[in-house]
Nucleic acid binder design. Structure first.
Lengths: 349, 349
DNA sequence: CTGAAAGCGCTTACAG
DNA sequence: CTGAAAGCGCTTACAG
């Protein structure tokens, strides 16, 4: 196999120096004639610079890493799409790494990225306290970092999150208008360490918004109707079991979940017991994952601008790289209530 | 910011040459004493080789690329998990790229990977005729390639697919046992070019298996009950509209879909019209995507060993790289029927 | 078992 | 506007 052309071969054919070829490629000074000649040779030889050599020479990795808890979360797909769209034809590649491999928390992939300077930038989806040392070491290594919906306070990095309070308020107002007065909230938990989880900040903010909106109408969510469980389908199933045991006249007529997975777990479980949604209970989720519109009745939920968020995260990272500046900005994104069929007027009693 | 240690600094501190440090790191010859000394210095200086320099020196990219149609398909998550598990701590990173960006077919990302030697290996999920030139150029560039469920004939690359005929047979036997005799098949289509699609090979094989199993019991699927549409939720919705118009006494009592997305689109549409599943119609999907177990009734489907397939694809690529051999093996993976609540005995008429 | 040296393919001050 | 030369941080024949 004839080995591919390198910059020296192009230079030879075009009767110029390698420097000049490099300049032509990277938009530096070059007289029109020379530029034309070099361009033609590049075409003819089908020359493309070898990225690894280029990155090596420039002292960078040419990659941005996207870190997720694990690949199974449906809500990451949109973020990924946004990042990809932003990266297309920018000579930056996208590395993907999970923090949970084969069901075990294992940050070695991402740790290696940082230690081995595999990435120039890093975008975290839903990181928390447990990732603090990882994020700190990334910052010390000069890796531009953006955090999407982090579940802890971080400084010196760009932060992107949705308007969770606003989301909660929108849901509260909507449910109140439908006549609901007994409303429950099932929030999610974030990881604190390899095996422990605690009340997530996002969920807490949504609950705050929900409570505010209801309070303005004199409605209060009793402590007994507030619970925080893992952000997982099983939690919805578990809550459904509790709900099913309640006397219907005292049970919440609407349940607001911290994410769609939990809401869907709840729905299918009560449906399997013959409960009709929304006739007997209204359900609201959060995220608008693909499954939310695949079930019947469709899940009323709050949509986040995930694609936009991913795109922006990536732009911030790139900007931080160019300016060599330490990003520390906070960006909030609007949300929108997506009304489907899982919510309806409060049942008559 | 003090710049990080390089191999020369380690060599200085350990009073050996760079060659020796390199050997210690990469497991070459080194006397125990020297090895110990160097190791200690590496520890003390917290030295880690810079991956880009290493890859540059070795003439490789240090990355494997995973190519998908787009990020939204739920069935890719498992493959990704398998690939990641296989790559962990092997000094190979995972690049992810889609062929559809912002709703438009755009292979520039992957084309760049090949042209710029960004990847050493490539794993395609569901590629087809349209990706042929891309795959050919990858092969010419010496990039080890594995194709997962390709929808066309390819040679010189490793191919992985599920036992689609077996899957179809299992479904056929199962539905026959439940008493179904009027069965419909809604297959999927694969991309032929940027805007055209045609009957997918996978779906065709599943139909073959289904037909075989039924034929053994003297049951035949009439041509009018076979249709191929896009692998998409909307196709399920469309088919549901057709099905709803049929006289119930002549309508298929069971519908087998080419993937879960279509099946779920069908389910929610007929459910929205008050049709009870499986009392009035049984539904079978293919893939076992997350949503399949989130809906009620849960979707009976055929599970593929996606995680295993992803893992194997990656192993094959790595092996091809080491041996510099041209892979050309074909691997078939078993499937399993996952019975949930969307299928039941044929309705009495 | 170890070291000096060359080389991987680019980019970029620097001098002209 | 252009070229000669140095350098990015590793690895690896080669010689000892």
């Amino acid at each position: 196999m004839k080995s591919r052309a390198d910059i020296a071969e192009v230079a030879r054919h075009a009767r110029v120096s390698k420097s000049t070829v490099s300049r032509v490629i990277n938009g530096g000074y070059a007289s029109p004639e020379v530029r034309a000649r070099v361009t033609k040779v590049i075409q003819k030889l089908a020359y493309t610079p070898w990225t690894t050599a280029r990155n090596f020479s420039l002292g960078r990795a040419g990659c941005v890493g996207f870190v997720i808890e694990d690949t199974q979360g449906q809500w990451i797909a949109q973020i990924l799409a946004g990042i990809e769209a932003e990266l297309t034809s920018k000579h930056i590649s996208l590395l993907v790494g999970s923090l949970v491999i084969r069901e075990h928390y294992d940050a070695t992939t991402v740790t290696s990225w940082v230690r081995e300077r595999r990435v120039d930038g890093l975008v975290f989806a839903r990181c928390g306290k447990f990732e603090r040392s990882l994020i700190d070491s990334a910052r010390r290594a000069g890796i531009a970092t953006a955090l999407i919906s982090p579940d802890d306070d971080f400084t010196g990095v760009d932060i992107l999150r949705s308007d969770n309070v606003g989301a909660g308020r929108a849901v509260g107002q909507y449910l109140f208008d439908l006549g609901h007065r007994r409303i429950a909230f099932v929030g999610g938990q974030a990881r604190v360490n390899a095996t422990t989880f605690r009340e997530s900040i996002d969920s807490r903010h949504r609950l705050d918004g929900l409570s505010q909106a209801l309070a303005e109408h004199g409605v209060k969510i009793p402590e007994s109707s507030i619970v925080f469980l893992r952000y997982h389908v099983d939690s919805g199933v578990e809550y459904a079991r509790r709900w099913l045991k309640l006397a219907r006249a005292r049970a919440p007529t609407a349940v607001v979940f911290g994410n769609d997975a939990m809401a869907l777990g709840f729905m299918r479980t009560v449906q399997s017991q013959g409960v009709r949604i929304p006739d007997e209970v209204s359900v609201v989720g959060f995220d608008d994952i693909p499954s939310a519109s695949l079930v019947w009745p469709g899940l009323t939920t709050v949509r986040q601008e995930m694609s936009k968020i991913g795109e922006t995260a990536c732009q911030l990272v790139r900007r931080a790289l160019e300016r060599k500046s330490v990003g520390g900005s906070v960006h909030q994104f609007p949300v929108s209530l997506v009304v489907r069929e899982s919510t309806g007027r409060v049942p008559n009693e």
